[in-house]
Design a protein around this nucleic acid. Sequence first.
DNA 1: GCAAGGTC
Length: 828
Amino acid sequence: MELIITEKDNAARRIADILSGESADATRENGVNVYEWGGKRCVGLSGHVVGVDFPPEYSDWRDVEPVELVDASIEKTPTKENIVATLRILARQGDRVTIATDYDREGELIGKEAYEIVREVNEEVPIDRVRFSSITENEVQSAFAEPDEIDFDLAAAGEARQIIDLVWGAALTRFLSLSSGQLGNDFISVGRVQSPTLKLIVDREREIEAFDPETYWELFADLIKDDDPFEAQYFYLDEDDNEAERVWEESAAEGAYETLSSADSATVTSVNARTRTDTPPAPFNTTQFIRAASAIGFSAKRAMSIAEDLYTAGYITYPRTDNTVYPDDLEAEELLDSFVGHPVLGESAEDLLEGDGDLVPTEGDEETTDHPPIHPTGEIPARGGDVDEDEWRVYELVVRRYYATVAEPAIWEHLKVVAEADGRQLKANGKRLVEAGYHDVYPYFNTSENYVPAVEEGEELAIGDVELEEKETQPPRRYGQSRLIETMEDLGIGTKSTRHNTLEKLYDRGYIENDPPRPTQLAMAVVDAAENYADRVVSEEMTAQLEADMDAIATGEATLEDVTDESREMLEAVFEQLRASRDEVGDHLRKSLKADKRLGPCPDCGEDLLVRRSRYGSYFVGCDGYPDCEFTLPLPSTGKPLILEETCDDHDLHEVKMLAGRQTFVHGCPLCKAEEAGEGPVLGACPDCGEEHGGELAIKTLQNGSRLVGCTRYPDCEYSLPLPRRGDIEVTDERCDEHDLPELVVHNGDEPWELGCPICNYREFQAREAESGSALESIEGIGAKTVEKLTAAGIESIDDLLEADPESLASTVEGVSEDRVRTWQTAA
DNA sequence: GCAAGGTC
């Protein structure tokens, strides 16, 4: 029996299809798919099925000095037991084994891991390696016709990376965590990829903090041709006869303003027209795909998650690739043909097929062997059936990007007009899209035009409105997620499969908040500490050096031991420096952790007010002077608090935003909110105790900002009805016949919401809940505690749960995984 | 309970 081993199940299935002529049978062994036909079997791994770690005696952080990890031995153990077990069974029965993992360095290592598992149980069997960069009939057939051997040097290069990453990462992570007493869930991590990425964000933040804005002026005048005005901007030439960048002096700006305001015409002194070819974009690699998806509103994580689903379902090719050059055997006509007649995607495909274009695709700079660029397979999902709207939008983006790469360039006409009025110069830059080219099939780029009419040199133009604006130079902008991923790629840190996960890791570790990400004080302190004592680990140089070393191992110029020994020596030297500064580093980290929770001064004692968590998991504001000072403020019960940069003028406290998925809202200054608390207008008699004790219903605002209709005899009477958190509540003159309460209208945004009688409103709400099956508890796998956590995150009904994005929910609710959410959604 | 790299 011949055994073929691939990197993933999906590849195993497709290779089995190709080699068997679609006659392979699928069976399951230990929950692993095995494809079998005519004396052959094909099985897919799941990436790495073994992992590196220290022996168990190193596992207690407190018992082991971090520096001991530098020279500790490293073991390889199975991490996917079922797959390893299956592989062993199949390998025993094999008389020939072919490793068909991905064609890149990590694939070679994964292949070598499979090789070792096979060898353990079968010493004799011949083991080959085949390499192909896309799973197509041609490539696969020819790879299998001429099998090669495993490249053990290349695999060793990958192993060196594993060892160096583990040793540096684990030793330094433990050191920082121990020095600051941050053990358990809130440990402080560093690593070869995450730390330089964090430094990018921190460095940018330092620039922003150090930025000193400068004032400058912008002066615009309307020039008029045939009653049509167009905008021109004042400029002047500097000593070198170049256009000055900006007008920095107020007097110069005002002088020009006065001249232009009193001039009634300007003479055209130059007209410069040129056409520019706007070439279509290159095929999608992972990074460019993430960038394009982010431009239409998807986070990096969400874009990748959708792409993975579309890939697994067979609609697009493998989404983790560095390649930007399509394989030769990808036939444009054939692929475009599969879209002909489609209601949404058909017209563009038909235009491309019928056009004069030669359908030769664009190429990017990166040509690699890993996988083809991301493109549609030709299998089209049903919108609203096979895929939901978000998935469709991502799918359409991938299809249209493919269209763009085989479409014609666009042609722009640029027109620069310079005119002069009383010695003052004005310029206008126009642009017009003459040939839309690929923009017709790829409508994601901005194609807005700027109107400047055709004028001739010497022509007189009337001057219309003149405007002078005072402006300030702006600090550099924070990196957005996709810009960060692009920069990581430029610097060579991380891989196509991990860069987006690295950003998620920084969020999870409390290093960055918000979007675009902003570093926490903790992040600043970690980068500081690393810069002072372990500069390598926050520098992209470490990766650059590692890449060079890995190349040396791969070509046989160095050995794994040479490289890892040298790296261990460097880390040893780092610890030499760190030893004496343990307390100092720990202190700084601890102070920064506190600063991340700080809202401002306590109104009672002047110490710091901090966001804290109660024993029951709810958030509140408490004084750092506790127990001497017992001042506290409540926070809303929905979501996780994020401290904003904005502060309140009255109390000098930072405002708070509550992160709760779709229900995220800005709470504001918690002290203001508490002060606003109180009883509003009385609506009528309390249905519970009105007759007996004279209780009345009133609109109340609680200290945590939530509002309700409650009895004035609270806490003796606990009758209450919910009200929305936001919007002004108007009490109208209309009264409900049944309950004799006024109808309420909520003004929030454009459309006023007629809430009506609060009792009727609450009844309707309950009825809707009951109808939708309501109670979250009714879903299998959700207990009372989970319901509480979900409610806090804004998930109050089954409908909410069904609409929720599993990823963002998993990230906001502790102890809930994406998989669990998906299971609930299926169950619901 | 540490990293980064695969994959789901």
